[in-house]
Design a protein around this nucleic acid. Structure first.
Length: 885
DNA sequence: GAACTCACG
DNA sequence: ACGTACGTGAGTTCA
């Protein structure tokens, strides 16, 4: 049976544009509406399998409706340029999809659609009409189903006449009466003032149509009667405006809309231009779609003991290699093998050495080569490779270029930092994705040897091809020294720290867990009693029902899916009912038990009693590290109960100590340096308490007059400044009015004028350059800084203010880490660096080195980078991390 | 797998 | 008028 899909082109483009973040490709071309449109088309083709297809667009500015009512669609915000520039792309896209497009001068898309659906009704053909506009419901019939997008564009709601009846109690034909009465602000259709959907529906259920409502206006009461009588003419005109014209003079020949699939070559070309990487990788474009020039020949050799000599003979002083391992956590991943790529001028050859061979006696020369500092390696993800090999007893040395780290520095927000993603991004011959070759989830398995050796060989070849490109790009962006002198050496330092691990007192942790379970049990019983029913306290849904429905507490904050029950809400509800405090306490202890007791215990190696975190160097957009498996950068400290968790982090050798040093106010010191604000610099040069000093200046009082509350507020302002302040954000944080918050900020800027100038200038710079940088030239692109959407633009502006500050602080501690690692070696110290927590370094130290380390660590940290204000680090030590405060 | 919540700097 | 403080990772529930 035939099936025609009709898309309301303008409506769907608009929906997509506002539903998706303002994506843009590397040329700055905005693509979010095109992307949304594309995903919708793909979904419809796959799920609906249409035999006929059509997209209708509005044409020309003046339609016959404007002739009748000049203000029609007046007051509607002008289409933003970021959207209008995407219409030509959408039309090009449709051509590649081979989907017919229609527009007719003087008519809107609605009218074209109305005429076609009428023809379909007459012929008895099936139609699915897709739009974001509920006006379209008037076209629903036994043959025509209307799909209205909701929640962005990913989901649609289907309407046929029965559903419209159930939902509104109206026939499709009465939808125009509904509009006639209530109007439509987005089209500037007036309707009757004061009549909304509810009232309009009530009237229609009683009288059936606009005309009948008006005829019976005498039966209405009071104000409503007046309004209806006064605006009778508006209602009639509104109904006419809302009525879709179904007699457009146009060809309605069915065969014109026949759909027989897209043009694979054109579509893949289009996706390439738009940089729709995920779609390119996911889709099968059929034969002819792959660019022949983009495929290089490769002889992929699977190495065995027999032909091992061939590889050994070709091992030179420099090569691209790839280390493949399965598993997210490199400390536990299983090594698949190592691949060498050799370009001997005549041919591209790769050699895949399976793990067993590499580890066998015969693999010895390969292992020696891998550990030889003089043999220069190019690879992808040095840090992970080093860990995976180290756990197999193989040393990796002599790395001269890590393509992953380079690609991250070139764009730290790049979401697809994989070889297949990057080769595509830089226009190089492609590599299949791991998912394509291995499958994912339960379906994951290694393919046969030939396929495996080819895939891994192509990865190694891709590394060889991409390295010169990335070297060049680093130079252009002036990030060479950041890369070669900081990030790449740091990868080695991190690997050392992680391999060392930190000792955890598992018995102590278990004991803590037993105590927590006991307490949780008591609180749980008490909560059930207060609630009068047993329920899952961990379920926000069930908890919300208990608090706001059963117990009737006031709900003031909502989430996408229901009531919010977060700590902010609960704290405000605490005075109403004893249960709330109990729930807060329960949440606090449950978090400790599940994340920090059970979660941490799972990560402790039984053989050594240690945990080995994995610092990720290519995740955070600002240049910070992140920590996984387990995350040791969020161990509790703020509340005493949680802080006790730190007691289980202990030295790995008897008689040793834990020593911790943290930077004092590093971000505000960085701000003082970058902004060159005189007042802020002065505060740090005189080594004052910065929050007290801020309070003195903002409130205009003497030091002795600053009370705890003033200092607290000043502290919040300082935080806000670092985050890219807004009056709204500050008001939320301090629980004050926006006006008061705005006044605080104004007072702050009146004093710290250099900071104000920095904030203004950095946003202007970001708008001009498209990116911001840190002191060490780390870069972050902010394409949304020019968005017309207020939220997106504001977010980008705050990021522009925050990233140079947070990023420079990250640069500094990374410098300190590399310098500290060198210093420990130089001085032949036994002490070991174990952890980094953004502004803190943690070591384990033998007793005899305590005095040295207490001196050296803060010294190295403070001297890591010379600023116009002094840097300072506080140090302490103890038998556990808890005690090193 | 998304949503919610909460731990850290 | 608009409505989020910046940057992360992990556990639990639920569709």
């Amino acid at each position: 049976m035939d099936k025609l899909i009709i898309i309301d082109g303008n409506s769907i483009a608009n929906r997509a544009f506002y539903a998706l973040p303002l994506l843009s490709n590397s040329n700055g071309l905005h693509t979010n509406a095109v992307y949304g449109f594309t995903t919708m088309l793909l979904k419809l083709i796959e799920e609906e399998k249409p035999t006929h297809f059509l997209v209708a667009f509005d044409a020309g500015k003046i339609t016959f409706r404007h002739k009748e009512y000049a203000e029609y669609k007046g007051g509607r915000a002008k289409t933003p340029p970021e959207l209008s520039e995407q219409f030509p792309l959408i039309k090009e896209l449709l051509t590649a999809f081979k989907i017919p497009q229609f527009e007719l001068s003087g008519y809107e898309a609605d009218d074209i659609i109305g005429t076609l659906t009428k023809a379909a009704d007459e012929k008895g053909e099936k139609v699915l009409l897709v739009s974001g506009d509920k006006d379209m419901l008037q076209l629903a019939s036994d043959h025509v189903t209307v799909a209205i997008t909701r929640k962005g564009i990913s989901e649609v709601e289907l309407y046929n006449p029965q559903e419209i009846k159930e939902r509104y109690g109206l026939t499709p034909g009465q939808i125009i009466d509904l509009k006639g009465l209530m109007g439509d602000t987005s089209d500037n259709i007036p309707g009757i003032p004061g009549v909304g959907e509810k009232t309009a529906l009530k009237m229609l259920h009683e009288y059936g149509s606009v005309e009948e409502v008006l005829a019976n206006s005498a039966n209405l009461k009071g104000k409503m009667k007046e309004k209806v009588e006064e605006h009778a003419k508006d209602a009639i005109m509104s109904k006419e405006l809302a009525t879709i014209f179904r007699e457009v003079p146009m060809e309605t020949q069915w065969d014109t809309f026949r759909y027989d699939g897209f043009d694979g070559q054109a579509l893949s070309g289009m996706f390439r231009k738009l940089e729709f990487k995920s779609l390119l990788e996911k889709m099968d474009f059929g034969p002819g779609a792959v660019n022949e020039e983009q495929v290089e020949t490769l002889e992929a050799v699977a190495v065995s003991e027999e032909n091992l000599g061939e590889l050994i003979a070709k091992l030179t002083d420099s090569a691209a290699i790839h280390v493949e391992a399965v598993g997210e956590n490199p400390h536990q991943a299983s090594l698949v093998g190592v691949v060498w790529f050799v370009d001997d001028g005549a041919a591209n050859v790769s050699y895949y050495v399976p793990s067993e061979l590499l580890k066998s006696a015969a693999g010895e020369p390969l292992r020696v080569w891998l550990g030889d500092e003089a043999k220069k390696k190019q690879l992808f993800d040095l840090h992970r490779a080093r860990l995976v090999l180290a756990w197999q007893g193989i040393t990796l040395a002599g790395v001269d270029f890590d393509a992953l780290l380079a690609a991250y520095l070139l764009d730290p927000t790049e979401s697809n930092l994989s070889l297949s993603g990057l080769t595509f991004k830089y226009g190089l011959p492609g590599v299949k994705t791991d998912e394509e070759v291995f499958g994912k989830g339960a379906k994951f398995r290694l393919p046969d040897l030939a396929a495996l050796s080819d895939h891994l060989g192509r990865k190694a070849m891709a590394i060889a091809r991409i390295v010169p490109v990335l070297r060049d790009e680093l130079e252009k962006s002036e990030m060479q020294s950041l890369f070669y002198e900081l990030e790449q050496p740091l990868a080695g330092v991190l690997a050392e720290m992680e391999l060392r691990g930190i000792h955890v007192d598992a018995e102590g942790l278990k004991a803590l867990g037993v105590e927590l379970v006991k307490q949780l049990d008591t609180i749980m019983t008490s909560i059930y009693k207060l609630a009068g029913v047993e329920f899952n306290i961990n379920s926000p849904k069930q908890l919300g029902e208990i608090l706001f429905e059963k117990l009737g507490l006031p709900a003031w904050k909502k989430t996408k899916t229901g009531y919010s029950t977060d700590a902010e809400v609960l704290e405000r509800l605490a005075p109403y009912n004893e249960i709330v405090g109990q729930i807060l306490h329960y949440r606090q202890l449950a978090k400790l038990q599940s994340t920090y007791v059970e979660g941490l215990l799972k990560e402790v190696r039984p053989e050594t009693g240690k945990v080995h975190t994995y610092y990720r160097q290519t995740i955070a957009a600002t240049g910070r590290l992140s920590s996984q498996f387990p995350n040791l950068q969020n161990i509790p400290i703020r509340l005493e109960e949680g802080r006790k968790i730190r007691k289980v982090f202990v030295p790995s050798e008897p008689g040793w100590y834990i020593l911790a040093a943290d930077y004092s106010q590093i971000e505000l010191r960085v701000l003082a340096h970058i902004s060159q604000d005189e007042k802020l610099k002065e505060a740090f040069l005189q080594n004052m308490d910065i929050h007290t000093k801020t309070a003195m200046d903002v409130f205009g009082v003497a030091e002795s007059a600053v009370d705890a509350n003033m200092r607290r507020q000043a502290k919040a302002v300082n935080f806000g400044i670092v985050y890219g302040i807004s009056d709204y954000g500050l008001s939320q944080n301090l629980d004050i009015t926006r006006k008061d918050a705005a006044q605080f900020i104004e007072q702050y800027f009146a004093v710290f004028q250099g900071v104000r100038k920095y904030m203004d200038d950095i946003v202007k710079d970001a708008r001009r350059d498209g990116y911001v940088t840190t002191l060490l030239q780390r870069r972050r692109y902010l394409p949304e800084i020019t968005a017309s959407n207020f939220n997106l633009r504001s977010f980008a502006e705050r990021t522009a203010m925050n990233t140079p500050i947070q990023g420079t602080a990250a640069d500094i501690i990374k410098l300190a880490m590399v310098q500290m690692a060198d210093r420990l070696k130089q001085e032949g110290l036994k002490s070991r660096m174990l952890l980094q927590v953004h502004d803190e370094l943690v070591f384990e130290v033998p007793e005899e080195e305590l005095e040295t380390m207490r001196r050296i660590v803060p010294e190295v940290m403070a001297a890591a980078l010379q600023l116009d204000v002094p840097l300072s680090a506080d140090v302490d030590f103890g038998l556990t991390w808890y005690d090193a405060k």
